[in-house]
Structures are given as structure tokens and as C-alpha cells.
Amino acid sequence: MSVTVKWGRERLAFALPQPDTPLAAIRRSLAEYTGLAAFRLIHGGAVLADDAATLRQCRIAEGSVIVLLPTAAAPAAPVVSDRPLQPLGLATEESAVLAAIHTELASVRSSLAPDLNDLLARAQDAPSDKREYLRLGELLLQSLLRLDGIAPERDWHTARKARKDAVKEVQALLDCLDDTIAARKAAGLH
């Protein structure tokens, strides 16, 4: 079961254990990964306060989004672990790594690719805002870095191929943006 945890600007994709797993196990895993001692978890508009409640009782299922909000007792700027998220030791499973890759690529396809296509369509006609080019370039680069942070095991051929294909797809979008910027500069439009 793959879910997304929103933490500020971060989007963490990971696999969850069985539906009868208590929320406390998820909270411990996120605390270890983020370095936060105190935070709230919100799902479906409700604060998840009962750590004894199971994932089923919290209605956390495939594709759920959980928001992680640090509380006042939490450090202002927690240091994110440099290792991939491994809740409950399950990220060692190839399916969890595949879920993280697919989540990142789906995010690029749903939010960045349409913005890029719109920007490129407008680029032919009139001067455009340089900030939009920079924003998209930065977001695509961040996506590449997140994909680079996903490290499938050597013998996980499916996950390694999925990561390689995802990197190629995001890099192609970034290359297209860079080519458009170069062409606009050459034409004196940028």
C-alpha cells in the first residue's frame, strides 16, 4: 500500500504495512526519518491522535495523503535523513521502491509537464516571464534529485529500470526547457 506524506514542501512516498498496524508504528518511523520529536498527523481533515488506532480505523489506504505538521516543541529546521524513507523496514521491498518512483513520476506528469507544455506553447508568440522558466527548471531539477535519491538494490531489475526510465523522462523535459531558453536567447526574446 503506497501513501504520500506531505511535510512542508517535501512529498514522501512510502509503503505502509498491513491495515491492522497501529498508527504508533508509523509515527515512530516518521519521527526517525524526519528527526522531529513532536508532530501531528492529519488525514482526511482529521488529526490522527489515537496512536493505538489501526490504519484501517484511520481509513488510510492506497493513495492516501497524510500531512505531517511539526508542533511548537519540534525543532524549527529539522535535518532530513539522507537515506530513503524506510518505514517499518518495508522500503527494502522492491514494491516500495517502485511506488516511490511511480509517485514522483506521476507528480511530474500531472503538475510540471502541463505547465511546461503551456509555457512552450506561449514561448513561440510573445515574451514571457523569466521567473516561470526558472521555476519549472528548478522543480524539474528537484524531481531529478529525488529520483537520484531512490536507490534500488542491485538485483531489483524492475525497480532499476523504472528509475532509469523515470530519470530519462524528467531529463527530457528539462532538456526541452533548456533548448527553448537557448533558442529564445538566440532570438533576443529572453
Rank of each mutant, 00 (worst) to 15 (best):
A77G: 10
A106H: 09
P78F: 07
V97N: 00
T71H: 06
S95P: 02
A100F: 03
P75F: 06
T71W: 01
A73Q: 15
A106C: 01
L90S: 05
G89W: 03
P78E: 08
G89Y: 01
L85N: 03
I101T: 00
L88W: 02
P84A: 10
Q86L: 10
A106S: 12
A106R: 03
L85A: 09
A77N: 13
L90M: 06
L105C: 04
A74W: 02
S107V: 07
H102R: 15
Q86E: 13
A74C: 04
P75S: 09
A76N: 03
L85S: 05
V80E: 15
T103Q: 12
S95Y: 10
P87V: 10
P75M: 09
A74P: 04
S95N: 11
P78K: 08
V97H: 04
A72M: 09
L98H: 09
V80L: 15
A106M: 02
A100Y: 00
L88R: 04
A76R: 12
L85W: 01
T71L: 11
A99S: 15
P87D: 02
T92E: 15
S81K: 05
L88F: 06
V97W: 06
S107E: 14
L105N: 05
L90Q: 01
P87A: 15
E104V: 08
V79M: 12
T103F: 12
E104S: 10
G89D: 02
P84N: 07
T71C: 04
P75Q: 06
A100P: 05
E94P: 07
A74I: 04
S95G: 09
T92M: 12
A73C: 09
V79K: 15
V79Q: 15
I101P: 00
P84Y: 01
D82K: 13
A91Q: 06
A77C: 11
L85Y: 02
A76P: 07
